Simulated assay, not measured.
Amino acid sequence: MKFLRHFLLFLLLFVVSCSTAYNPPSFEKASKATAKDLNAYWGGNEEFNKKLVLSVGRIKIPPYRLMPGDAVKVSVFGVEELEDLTGKIDAAGKVSFPLVGSVKIGGLTLAEARKVVKKALETYVMNPKVNLEVTEYKGFRVSVLGEVNKPDVYSLTGTRTVLDVLAMAGGLTDKASKTVILTHIGPEKNTVLYLNLDKLVDNMKFFDELMLKPGDILYIPKAENIYVDGFVRRPGSFSLTQPTSVTAAITEAGGMKIDADPTQVAIYRTLKTGEKKMIKVNIDNIRNGEEKNIMLQPNDVVIVPSNGLKVFVYHFFGFGWGPSGPTARAGR
């Protein structure tokens, strides 16, 4: 019995000494190890699309402003000759009515346009009660391209926002990033905006950049990937749709297996110069606040190694090893 105890102690010390000398695999091996799962995406944008649908209609959008090509109807209460007067706003933003003549209402809200028409009529009618409404919107077209479920050119009327059109386009695909590139086509030069969709949806309020203009182009780029492999429950690729830390990536991968070694995690990164870099990470220290959590970059490869001592102890005391960790052997 004494010999057996010494023998067990020797084996434990031997395993401990071996397990502390961790040599991460080469960058090439780490990359090949995840290649089989490059098409596995977790989570996708289903939750974002749900929030997108809920947000449409809840954002307080400013009043519509009349534009050239809109058809309007004016009626003056109690004056039969001035009922149902119609006209179309010309390229200069003006429209003509009997008595009133030509008035400029392009670019105004309906409330502002009513005041302009009322003031013009006061010369002929005492305190006129004016109603003005849009009978036909000119409409405009915008293009939605990239990682949406229904990319197309959409014909719009009235006041429309980026979120409206993304909802019309069926929301984002699972591979989409949370950035929309919005291009306003100008007469002399184009204006390009990069919008954070999470910010737009979560704040639930109106932003100036939400408004769409005729000829706008919305492009949703594909999110780049990171890869998690080794002793995690769901190794594979993860679509980098938002800033992600190494601990968050491991969580997305189902968390570490029971035989994983959290102190010897490695991040493999390709720099812009083409140089390969390996970063060692101690997850325990990050959780304890002793180390800063590392934010991952596109195409980073995270490798979680095994803990040799844990594997030895479980095997020695009669446990088998299944996909999720130790399992009791038959007869034990």
Rank of each mutant, 00 (worst) to 15 (best):
S17E: 04
M67C: 06
V100R: 01
F77H: 15
A113T: 05
G93I: 06
S75F: 03
L66N: 00
V56G: 09
T20S: 12
K88W: 08
K50Y: 07
S75Q: 01
S19Y: 02
Y124D: 10
D84Q: 08
K115M: 01
A92Q: 08
S96E: 14
A30N: 09
D70F: 02
N45D: 06
E83G: 13
E47F: 10
N23A: 13
M1F: 08
F97M: 09
E47S: 12
L9K: 13
V72W: 04
M1Q: 12
R5F: 14
V53L: 10
W42Q: 11
P62H: 05
I59L: 11
V74W: 01
L9F: 13
L66V: 13
I59M: 07
G44P: 06
I105N: 07
R5L: 15
K29Y: 10
E47W: 07
A111R: 11
A30K: 01
A40C: 10
S55P: 06
S17R: 05
A120K: 03
L4D: 11
K94M: 14
F10L: 15
G93R: 04
E28K: 14
V117M: 05
G43M: 03
K115C: 00
E46W: 13
G93T: 08
A40P: 01
N49H: 04
M1T: 11
S96V: 05
P62M: 08
P63M: 07
L9M: 10
A40G: 01
T86R: 12
F27G: 02
C18W: 06
E83H: 11
S102N: 13
V116T: 14
R58I: 11
M67Y: 08
K2V: 15
R65H: 08
S17M: 05
L99W: 06
E122A: 09
V15W: 08
